[in-house]
Design a protein around this nucleic acid. Structure first.
Length: 375
DNA sequence: AAGCCGGGGCT
DNA sequence: AGCCCAGGCTT
């Protein structure tokens, strides 16, 4: 068996293990924020917090978390809830599939696992919404399982610590970072250690202007030694701006509102219904929309000033859209209109003081003869 | 591997 | 006005 000589290299994360724990754990003990999901090791609390924290900052999550746990203190409470009640508490957090997955997973646990969050990686990983990060975060924090985590904070912190100049989001670098996150795990206090890494990333090793003066790892940080702490992690290359043909439309028929959209280069794959419930059997969405619309759409993909133009002839459907610089359209025919800015961004629509962006949109669209508004 | 989901905070 | 955030799922 050959020995990988990198094992003894100073850049081998395994060689940093004891030093890291000795620097990180005392720092965390001193600087850790008092966050509501740190009150105890209840795996359900940790689970909910981890899901809410996905792509969402701590300060945003706190009030949602507290309200959520007051309403649904246990897995059983969550499992017994209506999805709409859960979504209502989620309004404003975004990524609403997280809430639906949380609900579905709670129902599985209530039905098959006695309403407990199991100390079992295979069971956890089988639940919707629980990927590698979230599973390991729960298992390490609630059950002291020796498993690594890698998310935005630790990814940035480890990239700097080990002087990794490549894009940490790309495959090989990402695999290296996961391995490093595993290699540096101490034998004890794994949950605390994982939290300490993230806390350092959140409080000290920040995306811009890292506070190296207050960093317990500064003396060995390779990025700092080479003055690259500001340039690591490498920025993702900005997405190439490509002109694509895309079309979007909001349809209203009787009391039902539909939002339809053709994804980039694809066929009519996306169609959501607002507020909910199927449209009539017998007429496919695709057929109806194809028939209704003659698109003249040029839209630059993702970001930048966009132009969305829709031409259509309406027969059975009524098309309603109120947005920036757009004309209010209603009736059996419609003229051209376009939306500038993000396509159907909730903020570009009416600021309606009710419920989620989706519901806000739906409510607005369902209102009789809404007035056009400029933003 | 890339696209998609999303509102809010920060510079 | 961008960039970023305690990611996961789908294609």
């Amino acid at each position: 068996m050959t020995v990988n000589r990198s094992d003894s290299s100073p850049n081998d994360p395994r060689a940093w293990r004891s030093w890291l724990a000795s620097r990180l754990l005392p720092w965390f003990h001193r600087h850790r924020r008092d966050l509501p999901w740190r009150d105890n090791r209840d795996p359900y609390r940790i689970w909910v917090s981890e899901v809410m924290l996905q792509q969402t900052q701590v300060a945003t999550v706190i009030p949602y978390f507290e309200r959520f746990l007051r309403t649904f203190p246990t897995v059983a409470d969550l499992a017994a809830a209506e999805e709409q009640a859960i979504l209502r508490l989620w309004e404003g957090l975004g990524y609403y599939r997280r809430a639906r997955d949380l609900h579905r997973a709670a129902r599985v646990l209530a039905a098959d696992h006695g309403g407990r969050v199991p100390d079992d990686p295979d069971v956890l990983a089988s639940l919707p919404g629980l990927g590698r990060y979230t599973c390991n975060a729960i298992l390490s924090q609630a059950f002291e399982r020796r498993l690594p985590i890698l998310e935005a904070n630790s990814q940035r912190m480890l990239s700097r610590l080990f002087g990794r100049t490549e894009d940490p989001r790309q495959g090989p670098a990402r695999r290296w970072l996961w391995q490093a996150a595993e290699d540096i795990l101490p034998q004890k206090n794994v949950g605390t250690f994982n939290q300490a890494i993230m806390e350092l990333g959140a409080l000290v090793c920040t995306p811009t202007a890292p506070r190296c003066d207050g960093c317990p790892l500064a003396e060995r940080c390779l990025a700092r030694q080479s003055g690259q702490q500001e340039s690591i992690p490498a920025r993702a290359a900005p997405p190439e701006i490509v002109s694509v043909r895309e079309i979007a439309v909001v349809l209203r028929r009787r009391d039902e509102v539909f939002l339809a959209r053709r994804p980039q280069g694809g066929r009519w794959a996306g169609l959501w219904e607002f507020p909910k419930g199927p449209i009539d059997e017998g007429e496919t969405h695709e057929k109806a929309i194809e028939r209704l619309l003659h698109e003249r759409t040029t839209m630059r993909a993702r970001s930048g000033a966009e132009l969305l133009t829709i031409r259509h002839a309406v027969t059975r459907y009524r098309v309603v859209l109120t947005c920036y610089d757009a004309e209010y359209l209603d009736g059996d025919f419609a003229s051209d209109f376009y939306v500038e800015g993000r396509w159907l961004s909730p903020k570009s629509l009416v600021d309606y003081p009710v419920s989620s962006p989706q519901r806000r949109l739906a409510t607005h669209l369902l209102a009789p003869n809404p007035e056009p508004r400029l933003f």
